[in-house]
Design a protein around this nucleic acid. Structure first.
Lengths: 244, 244
DNA sequence: CATCGATCATACTGATGGGTAGTAATCCTA
DNA sequence: TAGGATTACTACCCATCAGTATGATCGATG
Protein backbone atom coordinates (compact mmCIF):
# COMPACT_ATOMS: atom_id res chain seq x y z
CA UNK A 1 0.00 0.00 0.00
CA UNK A 2 3.03 2.20 -0.03
CA UNK A 3 4.69 1.43 -3.33
CA UNK A 4 1.85 2.38 -5.58
CA UNK A 5 3.94 4.79 -7.49
CA UNK A 6 5.70 3.15 -10.36
CA UNK A 7 9.33 2.55 -9.53
CA UNK A 8 11.18 5.41 -11.05
CA UNK A 9 13.22 4.20 -13.99
CA UNK A 10 16.82 4.01 -13.00
CA UNK A 11 18.11 5.58 -16.17
CA UNK A 12 14.94 6.58 -17.98
CA UNK A 13 14.17 3.57 -20.10
CA UNK A 14 12.23 3.61 -23.34
CA UNK A 15 12.14 7.35 -23.43
CA UNK A 16 13.53 7.42 -26.88
CA UNK A 17 10.43 9.14 -28.19
CA UNK A 18 11.88 12.51 -27.31
CA UNK A 19 15.52 12.27 -26.26
CA UNK A 20 16.75 14.59 -23.59
CA UNK A 21 18.57 17.58 -25.06
CA UNK A 22 21.16 17.08 -22.36
CA UNK A 23 22.21 13.65 -23.37
CA UNK A 24 21.71 14.34 -27.04
CA UNK A 25 25.33 15.29 -27.41
CA UNK A 26 27.88 14.40 -24.83
CA UNK A 27 28.59 17.97 -23.96
CA UNK A 28 26.10 20.27 -22.46
CA UNK A 29 24.07 22.21 -24.89
CA UNK A 30 23.94 25.91 -24.93
CA UNK A 31 20.39 26.47 -25.97
CA UNK A 32 18.55 27.50 -22.91
CA UNK A 33 15.16 27.78 -24.56
CA UNK A 34 15.30 24.31 -26.03
CA UNK A 35 16.05 22.87 -22.66
CA UNK A 36 13.37 24.85 -20.95
CA UNK A 37 10.82 23.50 -23.37
CA UNK A 38 12.11 20.01 -22.83
CA UNK A 39 11.49 20.45 -19.11
CA UNK A 40 7.94 21.60 -19.72
CA UNK A 41 7.30 18.74 -22.06
CA UNK A 42 8.73 16.16 -19.69
CA UNK A 43 6.58 17.57 -16.92
CA UNK A 44 3.47 17.35 -19.07
CA UNK A 45 4.31 13.80 -19.95
CA UNK A 46 4.78 12.82 -16.33
CA UNK A 47 1.68 14.63 -15.10
CA UNK A 48 -0.23 12.96 -17.87
CA UNK A 49 0.80 9.52 -16.73
CA UNK A 50 0.91 9.79 -12.99
CA UNK A 51 -0.94 12.93 -12.05
CA UNK A 52 0.39 16.14 -10.61
CA UNK A 53 0.65 15.10 -7.00
CA UNK A 54 2.14 11.73 -7.75
CA UNK A 55 4.89 13.27 -9.83
CA UNK A 56 7.91 14.55 -7.97
CA UNK A 57 10.42 16.90 -9.45
CA UNK A 58 12.93 14.13 -9.03
CA UNK A 59 10.82 12.07 -11.40
CA UNK A 60 10.85 14.80 -13.99
CA UNK A 61 14.55 15.29 -13.57
CA UNK A 62 15.16 11.56 -13.90
CA UNK A 63 13.17 11.45 -17.12
CA UNK A 64 15.51 14.09 -18.50
CA UNK A 65 18.54 12.34 -17.06
CA UNK A 66 19.50 15.30 -14.94
CA UNK A 67 19.03 16.17 -11.30
CA UNK A 68 16.47 18.27 -9.52
CA UNK A 69 18.52 21.46 -9.17
CA UNK A 70 18.96 21.44 -12.92
CA UNK A 71 15.22 21.49 -13.33
CA UNK A 72 15.02 24.37 -10.89
CA UNK A 73 17.52 26.14 -12.99
CA UNK A 74 14.88 26.42 -15.70
CA UNK A 75 11.66 26.82 -13.75
CA UNK A 76 11.01 28.44 -10.43
CA UNK A 77 8.56 25.98 -8.93
CA UNK A 78 6.50 22.91 -9.55
CA UNK A 79 3.44 25.06 -9.66
CA UNK A 80 4.86 27.20 -12.41
CA UNK A 81 5.67 24.05 -14.30
CA UNK A 82 2.05 23.01 -14.24
CA UNK A 83 1.01 26.47 -15.27
CA UNK A 84 3.35 26.45 -18.25
CA UNK A 85 1.94 23.12 -19.39
CA UNK A 86 -1.53 24.52 -19.06
CA UNK A 87 -0.70 27.57 -21.13
CA UNK A 88 0.93 25.46 -23.81
CA UNK A 89 -2.27 23.48 -24.21
CA UNK A 90 -4.65 26.39 -24.07
CA UNK A 91 -2.70 28.30 -26.64
CA UNK A 92 -3.66 25.74 -29.25
CA UNK A 93 -7.31 26.42 -28.60
CA UNK A 94 -6.90 30.16 -28.65
CA UNK A 95 -5.18 29.82 -31.99
CA UNK A 96 -8.19 27.92 -33.27
CA UNK A 97 -10.48 30.78 -32.34
CA UNK A 98 -8.28 33.30 -34.09
CA UNK A 99 -8.08 31.16 -37.18
CA UNK A 100 -11.80 30.62 -37.34
CA UNK A 101 -12.60 34.29 -37.12
CA UNK A 102 -11.54 34.66 -40.71
CA UNK A 103 -13.92 32.02 -42.04
CA UNK A 104 -16.96 33.29 -43.81
CA UNK A 105 -19.37 30.46 -43.04
CA UNK A 106 -22.35 29.98 -40.75
CA UNK A 107 -21.53 30.03 -37.08
CA UNK A 108 -22.24 26.36 -36.69
CA UNK A 109 -19.43 25.59 -39.11
CA UNK A 110 -17.10 27.88 -37.23
CA UNK A 111 -18.08 26.21 -33.99
CA UNK A 112 -17.38 22.83 -35.47
CA UNK A 113 -13.94 23.93 -36.58
CA UNK A 114 -13.14 25.24 -33.13
CA UNK A 115 -14.38 22.08 -31.47
CA UNK A 116 -12.22 19.97 -33.73
CA UNK A 117 -9.13 21.87 -32.68
CA UNK A 118 -10.32 21.81 -29.12
CA UNK A 119 -10.56 18.03 -29.18
CA UNK A 120 -7.15 17.73 -30.74
CA UNK A 121 -5.64 19.92 -28.04
CA UNK A 122 -7.27 17.94 -25.27
CA UNK A 123 -5.96 14.70 -26.72
CA UNK A 124 -2.48 16.15 -26.97
CA UNK A 125 0.29 15.77 -24.48
CA UNK A 126 -0.86 18.87 -22.66
CA UNK A 127 -4.47 17.76 -22.44
CA UNK A 128 -4.16 16.51 -18.93
CA UNK A 129 -2.70 19.73 -17.67
CA UNK A 130 -5.36 21.81 -19.36
CA UNK A 131 -8.20 19.80 -18.10
CA UNK A 132 -7.28 18.18 -14.84
CA UNK A 133 -5.23 20.91 -13.26
CA UNK A 134 -7.35 21.84 -10.31
CA UNK A 135 -7.64 25.27 -8.83
CA UNK A 136 -6.89 23.82 -5.44
CA UNK A 137 -3.42 22.80 -6.51
CA UNK A 138 -2.43 26.30 -7.42
CA UNK A 139 -1.81 29.54 -5.66
CA UNK A 140 -4.57 32.11 -5.96
CA UNK A 141 -2.60 34.10 -8.49
CA UNK A 142 -2.01 31.18 -10.84
CA UNK A 143 -5.52 29.97 -10.30
CA UNK A 144 -6.78 33.36 -11.34
CA UNK A 145 -4.79 33.35 -14.55
CA UNK A 146 -6.03 29.91 -15.43
CA UNK A 147 -9.61 30.78 -14.70
CA UNK A 148 -9.34 33.79 -16.94
CA UNK A 149 -8.00 31.72 -19.82
CA UNK A 150 -10.64 29.07 -19.36
CA UNK A 151 -13.34 31.67 -19.20
CA UNK A 152 -12.13 33.25 -22.40
CA UNK A 153 -12.54 29.97 -24.19
CA UNK A 154 -15.89 29.31 -22.63
CA UNK A 155 -17.17 32.70 -23.62
CA UNK A 156 -15.88 32.13 -27.13
CA UNK A 157 -17.89 28.96 -27.47
CA UNK A 158 -20.99 30.59 -26.07
CA UNK A 159 -20.65 33.41 -28.52
CA UNK A 160 -20.40 31.04 -31.45
CA UNK A 161 -23.52 29.29 -30.21
CA UNK A 162 -25.37 32.58 -29.88
CA UNK A 163 -24.25 33.62 -33.33
CA UNK A 164 -25.40 30.31 -34.67
CA UNK A 165 -28.82 30.72 -33.15
CA UNK A 166 -28.91 34.20 -34.66
CA UNK A 167 -28.02 33.17 -38.16
CA UNK A 168 -30.23 30.11 -37.94
CA UNK A 169 -27.52 27.55 -38.26
CA UNK A 170 -27.97 26.32 -34.69
CA UNK A 171 -31.14 25.19 -33.02
CA UNK A 172 -32.29 27.61 -30.31
CA UNK A 173 -30.92 26.50 -26.95
CA UNK A 174 -29.33 27.77 -23.76
CA UNK A 175 -25.85 28.87 -24.89
CA UNK A 176 -24.31 28.51 -21.46
CA UNK A 177 -25.52 25.00 -20.79
CA UNK A 178 -24.85 23.88 -24.33
CA UNK A 179 -21.30 25.18 -24.13
CA UNK A 180 -20.83 23.26 -20.91
CA UNK A 181 -22.10 20.10 -22.52
CA UNK A 182 -19.88 20.39 -25.57
CA UNK A 183 -16.75 21.40 -23.71
CA UNK A 184 -17.36 18.75 -21.10
CA UNK A 185 -17.58 15.95 -23.62
CA UNK A 186 -14.37 17.10 -25.25
CA UNK A 187 -12.54 17.75 -22.00
CA UNK A 188 -13.32 14.27 -20.91
CA UNK A 189 -11.25 12.91 -23.71
CA UNK A 190 -8.22 13.74 -21.60
CA UNK A 191 -9.43 11.24 -19.02
CA UNK A 192 -9.51 8.22 -21.23
CA UNK A 193 -7.40 8.94 -24.28
CA UNK A 194 -3.95 7.47 -24.44
CA UNK A 195 -1.65 7.76 -27.37
CA UNK A 196 -0.97 4.97 -29.79
CA UNK A 197 -4.64 4.20 -29.62
CA UNK A 198 -6.57 3.38 -32.73
CA UNK A 199 -7.91 6.89 -33.24
CA UNK A 200 -6.13 10.19 -33.31
CA UNK A 201 -7.37 13.15 -31.38
CA UNK A 202 -8.62 14.75 -34.55
CA UNK A 203 -10.64 11.71 -35.49
CA UNK A 204 -12.26 11.55 -32.08
CA UNK A 205 -13.12 15.20 -32.21
CA UNK A 206 -14.64 14.66 -35.63
CA UNK A 207 -16.90 11.88 -34.40
CA UNK A 208 -17.95 13.88 -31.38
CA UNK A 209 -18.79 16.91 -33.42
CA UNK A 210 -20.97 14.81 -35.68
CA UNK A 211 -22.84 13.42 -32.70
CA UNK A 212 -23.42 16.88 -31.31
CA UNK A 213 -24.57 18.16 -34.62
CA UNK A 214 -27.09 15.46 -35.43
CA UNK A 215 -28.31 14.57 -31.99
CA UNK A 216 -29.58 11.19 -30.97
CA UNK A 217 -33.09 11.44 -32.28
CA UNK A 218 -33.48 10.31 -35.87
CA UNK A 219 -34.34 13.07 -38.27
CA UNK A 220 -37.59 13.10 -40.13
CA UNK A 221 -36.08 14.28 -43.39
CA UNK A 222 -35.15 11.06 -45.17
CA UNK A 223 -33.00 12.92 -47.71
CA UNK A 224 -30.23 13.36 -45.18
CA UNK A 225 -26.81 11.98 -46.01
CA UNK A 226 -26.41 8.20 -46.20
CA UNK A 227 -27.79 7.17 -42.85
CA UNK A 228 -28.94 3.77 -43.97
CA UNK A 229 -32.49 4.36 -45.10
CA UNK A 230 -34.55 2.16 -42.85
CA UNK A 231 -34.22 3.90 -39.55
CA UNK A 232 -37.40 4.06 -37.50
CA UNK A 233 -37.82 0.38 -38.22
CA UNK A 234 -39.44 -1.29 -35.23
CA UNK A 235 -39.91 1.98 -33.44
CA UNK A 236 -42.32 2.11 -30.54
CA UNK A 237 -42.20 -1.61 -30.06
CA UNK A 238 -41.22 -2.94 -26.66
CA UNK A 239 -37.65 -3.79 -27.51
CA UNK A 240 -37.13 -7.52 -27.67
CA UNK A 241 -33.58 -7.26 -26.45
CA UNK A 242 -34.77 -5.82 -23.18
CA UNK A 243 -35.77 -9.04 -21.46
CA UNK A 244 -32.28 -10.36 -21.01
CA UNK B 1 3.42 29.89 -1.78
CA UNK B 2 3.02 27.47 1.06
CA UNK B 3 -0.28 28.41 2.64
CA UNK B 4 -2.47 27.79 -0.34
CA UNK B 5 -4.63 25.36 1.52
CA UNK B 6 -7.48 27.07 3.26
CA UNK B 7 -6.79 27.44 6.96
CA UNK B 8 -8.48 24.52 8.59
CA UNK B 9 -11.48 25.74 10.55
CA UNK B 10 -10.62 25.74 14.20
CA UNK B 11 -13.85 24.14 15.31
CA UNK B 12 -15.59 23.34 12.03
CA UNK B 13 -17.56 26.46 11.34
CA UNK B 14 -20.73 26.63 9.25
CA UNK B 15 -20.94 22.91 9.05
CA UNK B 16 -24.43 22.96 10.40
CA UNK B 17 -25.72 21.41 7.20
CA UNK B 18 -24.99 17.96 8.53
CA UNK B 19 -23.96 18.02 12.18
CA UNK B 20 -21.42 15.57 13.41
CA UNK B 21 -23.02 12.55 15.04
CA UNK B 22 -20.41 12.82 17.73
CA UNK B 23 -21.32 16.22 18.95
CA UNK B 24 -25.02 15.72 18.26
CA UNK B 25 -25.59 14.60 21.78
CA UNK B 26 -23.01 15.16 24.44
CA UNK B 27 -22.41 11.52 25.03
CA UNK B 28 -21.00 9.18 22.48
CA UNK B 29 -23.44 7.53 20.23
CA UNK B 30 -23.62 3.85 19.87
CA UNK B 31 -24.48 3.61 16.24
CA UNK B 32 -21.33 2.57 14.52
CA UNK B 33 -22.84 2.52 11.07
CA UNK B 34 -24.21 6.03 11.35
CA UNK B 35 -20.82 7.33 12.29
CA UNK B 36 -19.07 5.41 9.59
CA UNK B 37 -21.35 6.97 7.03
CA UNK B 38 -20.73 10.37 8.52
CA UNK B 39 -17.01 9.84 8.00
CA UNK B 40 -17.55 8.88 4.38
CA UNK B 41 -19.76 11.87 3.81
CA UNK B 42 -17.35 14.27 5.46
CA UNK B 43 -14.56 12.88 3.32
CA UNK B 44 -16.61 13.31 0.17
CA UNK B 45 -17.38 16.86 1.15
CA UNK B 46 -13.74 17.66 1.77
CA UNK B 47 -12.49 15.95 -1.38
CA UNK B 48 -15.14 17.81 -3.28
CA UNK B 49 -13.91 21.16 -2.08
CA UNK B 50 -10.17 20.73 -1.88
CA UNK B 51 -9.30 17.64 -3.84
CA UNK B 52 -8.01 14.33 -2.62
CA UNK B 53 -4.38 15.23 -2.21
CA UNK B 54 -5.06 18.54 -0.58
CA UNK B 55 -7.27 16.98 2.04
CA UNK B 56 -5.54 15.50 5.04
CA UNK B 57 -7.17 13.08 7.39
CA UNK B 58 -6.72 15.72 10.04
CA UNK B 59 -8.96 17.95 7.97
CA UNK B 60 -11.65 15.32 7.80
CA UNK B 61 -11.36 14.63 11.49
CA UNK B 62 -11.58 18.34 12.27
CA UNK B 63 -14.73 18.67 10.20
CA UNK B 64 -16.28 15.96 12.34
CA UNK B 65 -14.86 17.51 15.50
CA UNK B 66 -12.89 14.41 16.35
CA UNK B 67 -9.26 13.43 15.97
CA UNK B 68 -7.46 11.45 13.36
CA UNK B 69 -7.28 8.12 15.22
CA UNK B 70 -11.03 8.25 15.57
CA UNK B 71 -11.36 8.43 11.83
CA UNK B 72 -9.03 5.47 11.53
CA UNK B 73 -11.29 3.62 13.87
CA UNK B 74 -13.93 3.62 11.15
CA UNK B 75 -11.88 3.30 7.98
CA UNK B 76 -8.62 1.56 7.37
CA UNK B 77 -6.93 4.07 5.12
CA UNK B 78 -7.37 7.25 3.19
CA UNK B 79 -7.50 5.25 0.04
CA UNK B 80 -10.37 3.15 1.28
CA UNK B 81 -12.16 6.34 2.18
CA UNK B 82 -11.95 7.52 -1.39
CA UNK B 83 -13.09 4.17 -2.61
CA UNK B 84 -16.13 4.21 -0.35
CA UNK B 85 -17.10 7.63 -1.63
CA UNK B 86 -16.75 6.38 -5.14
CA UNK B 87 -18.96 3.39 -4.51
CA UNK B 88 -21.59 5.54 -2.86
CA UNK B 89 -21.83 7.68 -5.97
CA UNK B 90 -21.74 4.88 -8.47
CA UNK B 91 -24.45 2.98 -6.69
CA UNK B 92 -26.92 5.71 -7.59
CA UNK B 93 -26.21 5.17 -11.24
CA UNK B 94 -26.43 1.42 -11.03
CA UNK B 95 -29.80 1.82 -9.37
CA UNK B 96 -30.91 3.93 -12.30
CA UNK B 97 -30.04 1.14 -14.69
CA UNK B 98 -31.97 -1.41 -12.67
CA UNK B 99 -34.95 0.86 -12.44
CA UNK B 100 -34.99 1.58 -16.13
CA UNK B 101 -34.92 -2.06 -17.11
CA UNK B 102 -38.56 -2.30 -16.15
CA UNK B 103 -39.68 0.51 -18.42
CA UNK B 104 -41.45 -0.51 -21.55
CA UNK B 105 -40.48 2.36 -23.81
CA UNK B 106 -38.08 2.85 -26.72
CA UNK B 107 -34.42 2.59 -25.81
CA UNK B 108 -33.88 6.30 -26.34
CA UNK B 109 -36.33 7.03 -23.56
CA UNK B 110 -34.62 4.56 -21.29
CA UNK B 111 -31.28 6.12 -22.11
CA UNK B 112 -32.63 9.54 -21.29
CA UNK B 113 -33.87 8.32 -17.93
CA UNK B 114 -30.50 6.81 -17.12
CA UNK B 115 -28.66 9.95 -18.15
CA UNK B 116 -30.90 12.07 -15.97
CA UNK B 117 -30.03 9.99 -12.95
CA UNK B 118 -26.42 9.95 -14.05
CA UNK B 119 -26.32 13.72 -14.11
CA UNK B 120 -27.95 13.94 -10.72
CA UNK B 121 -25.40 11.56 -9.25
CA UNK B 122 -22.51 13.50 -10.72
CA UNK B 123 -23.87 16.73 -9.30
CA UNK B 124 -24.28 15.14 -5.91
CA UNK B 125 -21.82 15.27 -3.05
CA UNK B 126 -20.12 12.14 -4.31
CA UNK B 127 -19.77 13.41 -7.83
CA UNK B 128 -16.21 14.50 -7.39
CA UNK B 129 -15.13 11.14 -6.04
CA UNK B 130 -16.84 9.27 -8.84
CA UNK B 131 -15.40 11.34 -11.54
CA UNK B 132 -12.10 12.74 -10.45
CA UNK B 133 -10.69 9.87 -8.50
CA UNK B 134 -7.71 8.95 -10.58
CA UNK B 135 -6.34 5.50 -11.00
CA UNK B 136 -2.94 6.80 -10.09
CA UNK B 137 -4.05 7.66 -6.60
CA UNK B 138 -5.16 4.15 -5.81
CA UNK B 139 -3.54 0.81 -5.28
CA UNK B 140 -3.87 -1.62 -8.17
CA UNK B 141 -6.54 -3.59 -6.33
CA UNK B 142 -8.79 -0.59 -5.72
CA UNK B 143 -8.08 0.74 -9.14
CA UNK B 144 -9.24 -2.55 -10.58
CA UNK B 145 -12.51 -2.46 -8.67
CA UNK B 146 -13.22 1.04 -9.78
CA UNK B 147 -12.42 0.31 -13.38
CA UNK B 148 -14.81 -2.62 -13.30
CA UNK B 149 -17.63 -0.49 -11.95
CA UNK B 150 -16.98 2.26 -14.45
CA UNK B 151 -16.86 -0.23 -17.25
CA UNK B 152 -20.16 -1.71 -16.21
CA UNK B 153 -21.81 1.68 -16.49
CA UNK B 154 -20.11 2.41 -19.78
CA UNK B 155 -21.23 -0.88 -21.24
CA UNK B 156 -24.75 -0.21 -20.02
CA UNK B 157 -24.88 3.06 -21.87
CA UNK B 158 -23.46 1.52 -25.02
CA UNK B 159 -26.06 -1.21 -24.89
CA UNK B 160 -28.88 1.30 -24.59
CA UNK B 161 -27.48 3.11 -27.59
CA UNK B 162 -27.24 -0.08 -29.60
CA UNK B 163 -30.76 -1.02 -28.60
CA UNK B 164 -31.95 2.40 -29.63
CA UNK B 165 -30.32 2.07 -33.02
CA UNK B 166 -31.98 -1.33 -33.33
CA UNK B 167 -35.48 -0.18 -32.49
CA UNK B 168 -35.05 2.96 -34.54
CA UNK B 169 -35.33 5.42 -31.70
CA UNK B 170 -31.70 6.51 -31.99
CA UNK B 171 -29.87 7.71 -35.07
CA UNK B 172 -27.25 5.20 -36.25
CA UNK B 173 -23.89 6.08 -34.75
CA UNK B 174 -20.81 4.61 -33.15
CA UNK B 175 -22.07 3.39 -29.75
CA UNK B 176 -18.67 3.53 -28.11
CA UNK B 177 -17.81 7.05 -29.12
CA UNK B 178 -21.30 8.30 -28.50
CA UNK B 179 -21.27 6.84 -25.01
CA UNK B 180 -17.96 8.59 -24.36
CA UNK B 181 -19.41 11.87 -25.53
CA UNK B 182 -22.53 11.62 -23.42
CA UNK B 183 -20.81 10.39 -20.28
CA UNK B 184 -18.06 12.95 -20.70
CA UNK B 185 -20.43 15.86 -20.86
CA UNK B 186 -22.21 14.65 -17.76
CA UNK B 187 -19.06 13.76 -15.88
CA UNK B 188 -17.78 17.22 -16.46
CA UNK B 189 -20.60 18.62 -14.39
CA UNK B 190 -18.61 17.56 -11.34
CA UNK B 191 -15.89 19.99 -12.37
CA UNK B 192 -17.97 23.10 -12.35
CA UNK B 193 -21.12 22.43 -10.40
CA UNK B 194 -21.30 23.73 -6.87
CA UNK B 195 -24.30 23.45 -4.67
CA UNK B 196 -26.61 26.34 -3.94
CA UNK B 197 -26.28 27.25 -7.56
CA UNK B 198 -29.33 28.30 -9.52
CA UNK B 199 -29.96 24.89 -11.04
CA UNK B 200 -30.23 21.52 -9.41
CA UNK B 201 -28.37 18.53 -10.74
CA UNK B 202 -31.57 17.14 -12.15
CA UNK B 203 -32.32 20.32 -14.05
CA UNK B 204 -28.88 20.40 -15.56
CA UNK B 205 -29.15 16.79 -16.60
CA UNK B 206 -32.49 17.56 -18.19
CA UNK B 207 -31.07 20.39 -20.27
CA UNK B 208 -28.08 18.30 -21.32
CA UNK B 209 -30.26 15.41 -22.36
CA UNK B 210 -32.35 17.71 -24.50
CA UNK B 211 -29.25 19.05 -26.22
CA UNK B 212 -28.00 15.54 -26.92
CA UNK B 213 -31.35 14.48 -28.24
CA UNK B 214 -31.94 17.31 -30.64
CA UNK B 215 -28.42 18.09 -31.69
CA UNK B 216 -27.21 21.49 -32.79
CA UNK B 217 -28.43 21.47 -36.36
CA UNK B 218 -31.96 22.79 -36.79
CA UNK B 219 -34.47 20.17 -37.81
CA UNK B 220 -36.31 20.36 -41.06
CA UNK B 221 -39.62 19.23 -39.63
CA UNK B 222 -41.28 22.43 -38.48
CA UNK B 223 -43.98 20.55 -36.56
CA UNK B 224 -41.58 19.74 -33.75
CA UNK B 225 -42.53 20.76 -30.24
CA UNK B 226 -42.55 24.48 -29.41
CA UNK B 227 -39.12 25.50 -30.64
CA UNK B 228 -40.19 28.97 -31.57
CA UNK B 229 -41.33 28.65 -35.16
CA UNK B 230 -39.00 30.88 -37.12
CA UNK B 231 -35.76 29.05 -36.87
CA UNK B 232 -33.75 28.96 -40.07
CA UNK B 233 -34.38 32.66 -40.31
CA UNK B 234 -31.38 34.25 -41.98
CA UNK B 235 -29.77 30.89 -42.58
CA UNK B 236 -26.89 30.62 -45.00
CA UNK B 237 -26.17 34.30 -44.85
CA UNK B 238 -22.68 35.37 -43.93
CA UNK B 239 -23.42 36.24 -40.35
CA UNK B 240 -23.52 39.95 -39.77
CA UNK B 241 -22.36 39.56 -36.21
CA UNK B 242 -19.10 38.14 -37.42
CA UNK B 243 -17.30 41.35 -38.19
CA UNK B 244 -16.89 42.46 -34.62
C1' DC C 1 46.62 28.94 -19.68
C1' DA C 2 43.87 31.71 -16.42
C1' DT C 3 39.54 33.32 -15.45
C1' DC C 4 34.69 34.14 -15.60
C1' DG C 5 30.14 32.88 -16.07
C1' DA C 6 26.92 29.44 -17.08
C1' DT C 7 25.51 24.91 -15.89
C1' DC C 8 24.97 20.93 -13.07
C1' DA C 9 25.48 17.55 -8.93
C1' DT C 10 25.85 16.30 -3.93
C1' DA C 11 23.78 16.72 0.06
C1' DC C 12 20.95 18.92 2.89
C1' DT C 13 16.54 21.34 5.38
C1' DG C 14 11.93 21.84 6.81
C1' DA C 15 7.39 20.80 6.64
C1' DT C 16 3.62 17.94 5.70
C1' DG C 17 0.86 14.11 6.45
C1' DG C 18 -0.37 9.04 6.57
C1' DG C 19 -0.46 5.90 9.94
C1' DT C 20 0.24 3.83 14.85
C1' DA C 21 1.29 2.77 19.96
C1' DG C 22 -0.33 3.31 24.12
C1' DT C 23 -3.71 5.13 27.16
C1' DA C 24 -7.80 7.27 28.93
C1' DA C 25 -12.58 7.84 29.10
C1' DT C 26 -17.16 5.92 28.57
C1' DC C 27 -20.71 2.48 28.18
C1' DC C 28 -22.97 -1.83 29.07
C1' DT C 29 -23.79 -5.74 31.77
C1' DA C 30 -24.15 -8.27 35.76
C1' DT D 1 -20.49 -1.00 41.24
C1' DA D 2 -16.92 -4.12 39.31
C1' DG D 3 -14.99 -5.24 35.01
C1' DG D 4 -14.75 -6.08 30.20
C1' DA D 5 -15.66 -4.08 25.68
C1' DT D 6 -15.99 -0.18 23.05
C1' DT D 7 -14.60 4.26 21.69
C1' DA D 8 -11.71 8.14 21.60
C1' DC D 9 -7.40 11.05 22.41
C1' DT D 10 -2.31 12.32 23.12
C1' DA D 11 1.84 11.87 21.34
C1' DC D 12 4.65 10.02 18.34
C1' DC D 13 7.17 7.77 14.00
C1' DC D 14 8.82 8.03 9.55
C1' DA D 15 8.64 8.44 4.50
C1' DT D 16 8.18 11.77 1.02
C1' DC D 17 9.20 15.77 -1.32
C1' DA D 18 9.54 20.83 -2.57
C1' DG D 19 13.03 23.75 -2.48
C1' DT D 20 18.14 25.32 -1.44
C1' DA D 21 23.21 25.99 -0.02
C1' DT D 22 27.45 25.02 -1.72
C1' DG D 23 30.78 23.81 -4.58
C1' DA D 24 32.42 21.23 -8.80
C1' DT D 25 32.79 21.22 -13.90
C1' DC D 26 32.72 22.85 -18.44
C1' DG D 27 33.12 26.08 -22.42
C1' DA D 28 34.46 30.25 -24.12
C1' DT D 29 37.43 34.15 -24.25
C1' DG D 30 41.55 36.79 -24.01
Amino acid sequence: MSSRRAPRPAVATHNAQRPSPWRASRERLRDREVKREAVIRAAAHAFNRKGYHNTSLDDIAAALEVTKPTVYYYVTSKEQLLFQCFVAGVEQIRAAFREVKRLNVPARERLKAVLRHYGEAVASEFGWCMVRAEDQDLSPAMSGHIKALKSEIDQGIRRLIRDGIQDGSILPCDPKMTAFALAGALNWIAHWYRENQSMTGAQIAEVFVTVFENGLRPRASAAEGSTRGSARRRARQPAAALAR
